[in-house]
Amino acid sequence: MTSAERAAYQCLSAVDAASLILAEPEITLFDVRDLHSYRQEHLERAMHLSEDRVPLWVGRLPKDAPVLIYCYHGNASKTYAQMFSDFRFRRVYSVDGGYRPLAIALNGPARVSGTDGSAELGAFLAEWTFDPADLNAPRQHGLTPLMRAALQGQREIAGELLALGVDIHARNDDGNTALWLACVSRDRGLVQDLIDAGIELDNRNDAGSTALMYTASSDRPELLQLLLEAGADPHVRNFDEMRAVELSASRACLKLLRHTAD
């Protein structure tokens, strides 16, 4: 099949993809992120798809069935979309920007207000020019108020934000959550607060790295141990195929991870 004979897939913005999903409730949705991320959260009705299962679905779905595919940021989904197009599926869509923008476009970001919060919270929001009417709205570098409080090591402010119900799963421009940023500030209590709040332990940023990898590579054994005890996965690999044990910057970190070396 020449490139000219290939059926073309379409790339859709998150907003257009959300409109399509709402307009066509029978559309087939595929999530091509790793299985751990899929199990953590995914769109309703979306099925996990790996490359080895593409032939199964190619043989099962009618060629005129609409298929929409999303990944982390909109790159891998194009590869999968081309696979379906090569098998002459006529309506195949890849989502630009990936899962997070699509989920927000479908569900809308929760608006959590801090207008009735403490004076300290109000001063913090003003200092960093956050919108007190929407505590999930990001500012510089994609940081939300919770992320900023974590980065600055302001545990009491972070605690108040958590009590108000802010989104603990939000990611900044590098794909990091508040957990990573709390590890940067080295605030053990704040890290524990985020763990207790149910933050995802194994979120992978845009380099495929987790907070566990960061604590190992930056010589933070006390936080490394805390994450391990909470259930963080030491076997996750970044996009360079490195695990936390291989990134360890000190003997203390290596000792905590020695059981994962094999």
Rank of each mutant, 00 (worst) to 15 (best):
M1Y: 09
S3A: 05
R6G: 01
Y9L: 02
Q10W: 03
S13D: 12
V15I: 11
L22H: 09
A23F: 07
E24C: 10
L29W: 04
F30A: 09
D31C: 07
D31F: 06
R33I: 06
D34I: 05
L35C: 05
L35Y: 11
S37C: 10
Y38A: 00
L43E: 03
R45Q: 14
R45W: 01
R45G: 00
M47E: 07
H48N: 06
L49W: 06
S50R: 14
W57E: 06
G59E: 14
L61K: 06
K63I: 00
K63V: 01
D64A: 12
V67A: 09
V67I: 15
L68Q: 04
I69A: 12
Y70E: 11
G74I: 03
A76D: 11
T79V: 14
A81E: 11
F84M: 08
S85H: 03
R88E: 13
G97H: 09
G98T: 04
G98V: 02
Y99S: 08
P101W: 12
P101D: 12
L106C: 13
P109K: 06
P109Y: 00
A110T: 07
R111W: 00
V112A: 00
S113Q: 06
S113H: 04
G114H: 04
T115W: 00
S118W: 08
L121T: 02
G122Y: 01
F124S: 02
E127Y: 04
D131T: 05
D134M: 08
A137Q: 15
A137P: 02
R139N: 11
Q140L: 11
L143P: 00
T144H: 04
T144I: 03
L146W: 03
R148Y: 01
R148D: 01
A149C: 10
A150Y: 01
Q152M: 14
G153E: 04
I157W: 10
I157N: 03
V166E: 01
R171C: 14
N172K: 05
T177C: 10
A178Q: 02
L179H: 09
W180D: 06
W180L: 15
L181P: 02
C183M: 07
C183I: 05
V184H: 13
V184Q: 13
R188D: 11
V191F: 00
D193L: 12
D193H: 06
G198C: 09
I199R: 00
E200L: 00
E200N: 02
L201N: 02
R204K: 13
A207R: 13
G208C: 10
G208M: 07
A211L: 00
L212W: 09
A216W: 04
R220C: 15
R220G: 02
R220M: 10
L223R: 08
Q225E: 14
Q225G: 10
L226R: 12
L228G: 13
E229A: 15
A230R: 10
G231S: 05
G231D: 04
A232Y: 02
H235E: 12
M242H: 10
A244T: 08
E246T: 05
K255H: 12
L256Q: 08
H259K: 14
H259V: 12
H259Q: 15
